[in-house]
Structure formats: structure tokens, C-alpha cells
Design a binder for these strands. Structure first.
Lengths: 229, 229
DNA sequence: CAGTGGTCTAGACCACCAT
DNA sequence: TGGTGGTCTAGACCACTGC
């Protein structure tokens, strides 16, 4: 069996963790490593690219490859559709549209999405349920400039998220997570007490530079998101 | 100039977003695509591997490649050291050790890390400051079985996170985010009101299957984490 | 300028697994 | 069992950038 890129990656990682390749030190170049491991340069290259991706090393042409001083930690979270998140738990999904208005964007939204103050946006408030219990509150704003069809769509049967995924399958987004206290309206919708700590997700989405939508998702109390690395 | 894997990736992505390659449909195999694009099979392969990584397609040997029904969204968050997070904002970092005890793990911790009930753990409470203002509360548990040196380490000068990064540069971890209400102790340390909604990060860390540490980081009010994709 | 990584090629063998 | 993706090879050219 020949030497695989996994072998090379594992061995380099071992040398890094054992200190044989110290933080800040230089890693031999690809040609030398290929000779050492008895494999092709492309094999070493793939191993090294994965180590870059995992945050263990840095590479620059001519300067070579160095072990990072502090490994860069990053974790990846999947962003599921609410419906799938709920149904994957073997629970019945429910949805309802709470409010729908066409309006001008408030200042904070215009800033966040770089909208003109006089363009129209569709503002939706929706609720998602798991087995009939409140699961997630959705505060959604959709640009009607980019997406005029939204105005004639019946959001009482399909959630805006699922609709948008069909219409705009690919997009760029900015996501942020934080905590808020439940105000009276959130408390009423989510069936919790005013002041309860709630986990909130905000997502702004663009397509080819144009703002499509902003959404603020408020999860029921105790909600958490988890991942491994 | 020859056809690059970026060209191939961009073109496939274009076909996916325009519906030319519909969700659920089959993508031609690598050999055909290589012929179509006039490039080597390896070039197509790299483009496709990145599309898998980005969540747009699925691949299985023999079955071939299909466009995912719903693109899998995922976002990557970097997990900085508190010190670097604060200093990168151009602000002075401060640290203090609040409490230190050696004890047996409480039940929830033993379950979370798969610890024996009778082994010893080091329990630390620390505070991190930005420009003298409370920034983050750290509730840290370290297994003394795997890491006996922790007991003799002076955590009044170095934070446990920075120490652990040096001692155990590589590890597996599980991270979760959620929201909590400030209890009286958190409120006192973070200088906020009891009941305030706080963003909390929990991380369990293993090295080669052995539990190393569990930490609960509570951020000051209004803290948020953000990323793009 | 010269060393390093970034990438492409053309060919090969193999593992997996749907049929 | 045959088609498909997974990976390795040996060689090549090029882009970047530290010296």
C-alpha cells in the first residue's frame, strides 16, 4: 500500500502535537517531505492543505510553511431549516403566519442591509411549532425590490425561509448569535415568562451584492446549538 | 490558460443556482465533465470535492453525484482565546483568578466528560477584563487524572485556557451555545443585573479519548458572535 | 532572482456499492 | 460485477514573494 495523504497528515499532526515540530518553527518543504515519506509531492500538498484548513499551519510561497503559534480553533455549525430540525427529532412540525405588512424599512434595517429608505419591504411575523408547542419565533424582512414576487406569495401555508430557499438557492449571508430577554410579545408567542433568557439568531442575506432578506429567529427557552471539532 | 478547478466549480455552481442542474438531479460523472471542460479528471474532482464541502452536492461511488434537494447551510465560527479577542480590539486585557478548589466531579460533569465519580478535578473560577471592565466569566473544570500538572500550576498569573493550549495543543471538542439568565453571582462578577440575558459557551475537550476539561464561558451582556458564509 | 507553494495533466489502480 | 468516485504518481509550468 502506498503512502496516503491521511498518513502524511496524521504524521505531521503527531509531530506538531508532540512538539517535534514546535510552534513557530518551519516545516520542511513539499519536495523534501515527499522524499522523506516516499510519496508524490501532490500527496504531501493535499495533507498540508488540510492542515491549513484545520488551522494548524500557515503557508506562504517562498517563505515556506510554519506551525502556527496558537492553533486556530474554529467550529462549524449547520444551519438547518426549522422544519427539518423539528422533523428530524421525530416530532410534528407546525407553522403559522402571525402578521404581514408592507412597509418602509426602519433605520436599523436600512443600515444592516444597505437599503434605500424609500424602498418597500415585506415584514412577516411567523411561529414554528414542535408537537404543537412553540418552538421558534421568526421576525422576517424581505426586500421587495429584489424579490417582488414575495408580495403575492401566500405565506400562510409556506414559511418564508422555505420559500426563499427555493427562489434563491444560493446566497451570501452574515449570521450572528446572541442572547436577549423575552419582551411581552416574545413571551406571549413562545409561552415563556417576560425576562426569560432567549437564544437569538440573526441572519442577513445577499445575492450578488443585493440585499434579499433579514431574519431574527428567537428560539424557545433552553434552546442550544451544538457542534464538534 | 488552462481550465482551473475554480472555473469548473464556478460553472457548476452557476448551473445549480440557475436550475440548469436541478435539485435532486444527477451531475455528469467526472470523466464526462473533464471532457466537456477540456481539463483533467483531477481538476473536476477537486471542484466537486469543494462543492461537497460547501454543501451543494452529494457523491457516492457508483451512484454518482447529485445536487442536494436543499443546500446544506453551515457557518464556521472562529473560537479565539479571550486574550486575543480583547487585544485585537485594541483594548487592554486583564485577568484574575477568583476561586480554586480540588474536588470530586459533580454528577452532571461526570456524565458530560465520562469521568469516574471518585477521581479528582481542579475547579477554577476566573474573570477576564477588557479595559478593566468585566468581559467574560470562566467556570473551568480540569481533570487531574489526565493532567496532574494542573494542580501545581499557578493560575493567578496565566489563564487556564492559555495554559491548556500550551500543554495540549491538539484535541477534540464539543461546543455549544445558549442563553441563560444571570444569577446573583454572575451578575456580581459581570457587573450586570440579576436576570439579564447572557450568552454562554460550553466546551468539553478530549485528547485521545480522555476527558481533559470542561469550561462554561459566560459573556458580558450584549455579547454576540458573528460570521459570514 | 530563486525558492516555495499552487495547480494542472495524463495515466493508473483500487474501494465501494447499486443493480 | 461494472460504473463511479477516491486517491496516488511523476512531471510540468507558473505565481508569488522574501532575499
Amino acid at each position: 500500500m502506498s503512502v496516503t495523504f491521511r498518513d502524511v497528515k496524521a504524521d505531521l499532526l503527531r509531530k506538531i502535537t508532540l512538539g517535534e515540530l514546535a510552534p513557530g518553527s518551519n516545516v520542511p518543504n513539499e519536495i523534501d517531505l515527499a522524499a522523506d515519506y516516499g510519496c508524490a509531492r501532490a500527496t504531501v500538498n493535499r495533507a498540508m492543505r488540510e492542515l491549513v484548513d484545520d488551522g494548524f499551519i500557515e503557508r506562504r510561497r517562498k517563505a515556506g510553511t510554519r506551525v502556527r503559534m496558537v492553533p486556530v480553533r474554529s467550529a462549524r455549525f449547520s444551519i438547518p431549516l426549522v422544519r427539518e430540525e423539528i422533523e428530524s427529532q421525530g416530532v410534528e412540525y407546525g407553522y403559522s403566519l402571525v402578521a404581514r405588512t408592507v412597509t418602509k424599512p426602519p433605520d436599523w434595517l436600512a443600515v444592516q442591509l444597505s437599503l434605500a429608505a424609500n424602498e418597500s419591504v415585506l415584514h412577516l411575523i411567523c411561529m414554528h411549532y414542535a408537537d404543537g408547542e412553540p418552538y421558534q419565533h421568526e421576525d422576517r424582512w424581505i426586500s421587495l425590490l429584489v424579490n417582488p414576487n414575495a408580495e403575492s406569495t401566500d405565506f400562510t401555508v409556506i414559511g418564508p425561509n422555505e420559500w426563499l430557499v427555493k427562489v434563491i438557492p444560493f446566497s451570501n449571508a452574515e449570521i450572528s448569535f446572541h442572547a436577549v430577554q423575552a419582551d411581552s410579545e416574545l413571551a406571549r408567542h413562545l409561552g415563556c415568562k417576560v425576562g426569560d433568557a432567549l437564544f437569538q439568531t440573526e441572519r442577513s442575506t445577499w445575492w450578488k451584492g443585493d440585499a434579499i432578506t433579514f431574519v431574527r429567529l428567537t428560539h424557545r427557552p433552553m434552546h442550544r446549538i451544538t457542534t464538534q471539532y
